[in-house]
Simulated scan of single mutants.
Amino acid sequence: MTRKKGESKVKVFLDWCKGCGICAAFCPNKVLSVDKQGKVRVDREDDCINCGFCEIHCPDFAIMVYPKDERTPFEANIDDVAPATREELHRIRNSNST
């Protein structure tokens, strides 16, 4: 687990966030805040130490913290996954396009 500032990315899934503010309250470095629309905002990503408090305490699983040098599954290219999984993804995409 990364514990140095500036080595983590913070991803907030705004559609999942209900703006409870728990993540911002638990963040030891005040990386997160709740904006006027009631959604979490990443204010100071470079201060994140990847302690995991926001992820653990979010009741809606709306936050993901990971090392900057890694891509999330949401950023992965379809060609980066295993062949069996790639075939399944192509099948799903093709069935949804009809």
Rank of each mutant, 00 (worst) to 15 (best):
M1D: 13
T2D: 13
T2A: 12
R3D: 13
K4M: 13
K5Q: 15
K5W: 05
G6Q: 06
G6V: 07
E7L: 15
S8T: 06
S8L: 03
K9G: 00
V10G: 01
V10A: 04
K11P: 04
V12F: 02
V12L: 04
F13M: 07
D15F: 12
D15K: 06
C17Q: 06
C17V: 09
K18R: 03
K18F: 04
G19F: 01
C20T: 04
I22S: 04
I22F: 11
I22Y: 05
A24E: 09
A25Q: 04
A25C: 02
F26I: 10
F26Y: 11
F26E: 09
C27Q: 07
P28I: 13
P28M: 11
N29Q: 15
K30A: 12
K30G: 08
K30L: 09
V31A: 10
V31T: 11
L32C: 09
L32I: 10
S33G: 14
S33C: 10
S33D: 15
S33W: 07
V34A: 02
V34E: 02
V34I: 15
V34Q: 01
V34G: 00
D35H: 14
K36G: 13
K36Y: 12
Q37I: 08
Q37G: 09
G38W: 10
K39A: 03
K39W: 05
V40F: 06
V40M: 10
V40D: 01
R41S: 02
R41E: 08
R41P: 01
R41Q: 05
R44A: 12
R44G: 04
R44M: 09
R44K: 15
R44C: 05
E45N: 05
D46F: 08
D47A: 13
C48F: 14
C48M: 13
I49C: 06
N50Y: 10
C51P: 07
G52T: 08
C54D: 07
C54S: 07
I56H: 07
I56R: 06
H57W: 08
H57G: 06
H57K: 08
H57D: 06
C58S: 05
P59V: 07
F61Q: 05
A62M: 07
A62P: 04
V65L: 01
V65H: 00
Y66I: 01
Y66T: 00
P67V: 07
P67Q: 08
K68D: 03
K68S: 04
D69H: 11
D69N: 14
D69S: 08
E70S: 10
R71H: 03
R71Q: 05
R71N: 03
T72S: 05
T72W: 01
T72P: 00
P73V: 03
P73S: 03
F74P: 00
E75A: 00
N77C: 08
I78W: 02
I78D: 01
D80E: 15
V81M: 10
V81L: 11
A82Q: 11
P83N: 10
P83S: 13
A84I: 10
R86D: 11
R86F: 11
E87I: 08
E87L: 13
E88L: 14
E88P: 01
H90A: 05
R91Y: 12
R91K: 15
R93M: 09
N96F: 14
N96R: 13
S97K: 14
T98E: 14
T98A: 14
T98Q: 15
